[in-house]
Simulated scan of single mutants.
Amino acid sequence: MSMHDYPYYRAALANHRLPAAFIDLDHFAINLEHLRLRAGNLPIRLVTKSVRSVEMIHRIMSAGPFMRGLLCYSVGEAAWLASEGFNDIVVAYPSVEPTEIRMAATQIRNGRSITLMVDCVEQVIQINRIAVAEGVVIPLAIDLDMSSAFPGIYFGVHRSPVDDVSTAIKLGREIAGRKSVVLQGLMGYEGQVAGLMDDVPGEAIKSSVIRYLKRKSIIEVNARRQAVVEALKKDGHRLRFVNGGGTGSFESTRQDPSVTELAAGSGLYAPTLFDHYRGFKLLPAAGFALPVTRIPKGGVVTCSGGGYIASGPIGKNRLPQPWLPAGCSLIDNESAGEVQTPIRHSGVTTPAIGDPILFRHAKAGELCERFNELLLIQDGRVIDSVRTYRGERKSFF
């Protein structure tokens, strides 16, 4: 799966402190180009939670005009990134935290574009109240639920109570009835299509069922999004953008003519939860290296650190996975630990004390919550390091 092997990374990391997180810029560039090609003629809004590094966000946004705007996970994060020079920012999740909304209002007053997400009138009322006090008009977007309810199966995620034309129109009118907020966009994220692997080795039946449910869901939710967009426009709303999709659903989201932009972030770092999609393949571009500090017995080495578990439903697929050298695996009854991680090795390479063991995280940006910096590897060496949000002393949740 990887273009680069263990000796390549071991040599690149030889004189650097471990544990360390890194980005393989060669693989990163290939993944970015694949996203561009998969997006077709639609621009891509960058999902910042999957990147969590200002310098990496700058690098991505400078790749070309196909990258257009940011999709943030926190209002405070959006305000901070606006203060760092970014513009055209949409916050993907609702918030009524007054301190953060006032921060966003300050940036709007300074000429930055920040759009806040809503899915109920209570959110609209509180945002409008702060906007009035701050003397600004705050742009809003409606979060349209894109889950599918099949007989006996809820196929999707629990996001928004706005799930049809009538609920969207009702909320749109609540926004239009207030002077300090304005409806500018709609987001319809089909998480059950974008975020579920559908070609997992050893899970042929489950993967087949997921692909079947995806096909059914795509038809339904694309029609739902189109109907809501058309109804909002007929009701007098001028939508600046209609956002949809994620790394795993570019092809199906593009089928919806109402969508004006796609969203992606995980497809750049390529964590393990994006390894097994039938429609596309990514190259591992982000990882972390742990040093071997013990050799308790033959076939087992123990590394410092490593307990970087991903959010979501509890399961082995949320664990970081030993990547290189080949033949390494976690030990079930210890797994990835708080201060040490033992692994079994059965490959041709026998790790020695001080050698790095390379791991991949299950999710993209969450890795950055564990490290202050990312080492940038290119042409077999570390050419630079960039700070993560953590390294900037920023924590938003």
Rank of each mutant, 00 (worst) to 15 (best):
V121S: 14
A131H: 01
V47Y: 05
V96W: 10
N110R: 09
D24Q: 00
R112N: 07
N87H: 07
A79L: 04
R17M: 11
C120G: 05
A104D: 08
E122Y: 08
G85K: 03
T115C: 11
D119H: 02
T99Y: 14
V91I: 04
N31K: 00
R129G: 12
A104P: 12
F28C: 13
A78M: 02
L18M: 13
I114C: 03
V47T: 05
G135V: 02
I44E: 07
M117T: 05
L46E: 07
C72Y: 04
A21S: 06
I30N: 12
Y73I: 00
S50G: 03
Q126I: 03
L18P: 06
A29M: 06
N41C: 10
I89W: 06
A21Q: 02
N87I: 02
S74N: 14
Y93N: 10
D119W: 01
R38W: 14
A79R: 00
H16C: 09
A141P: 02
V47Q: 06
L25E: 11
L70V: 06
Q126K: 14
E84I: 04
V90T: 09
I60P: 09
V75E: 11
L81T: 10
M61P: 12
D119S: 00
E122S: 14
N110Y: 08
I60F: 09
I125A: 08
G111C: 02
H58L: 11
P43E: 09
L81Q: 05
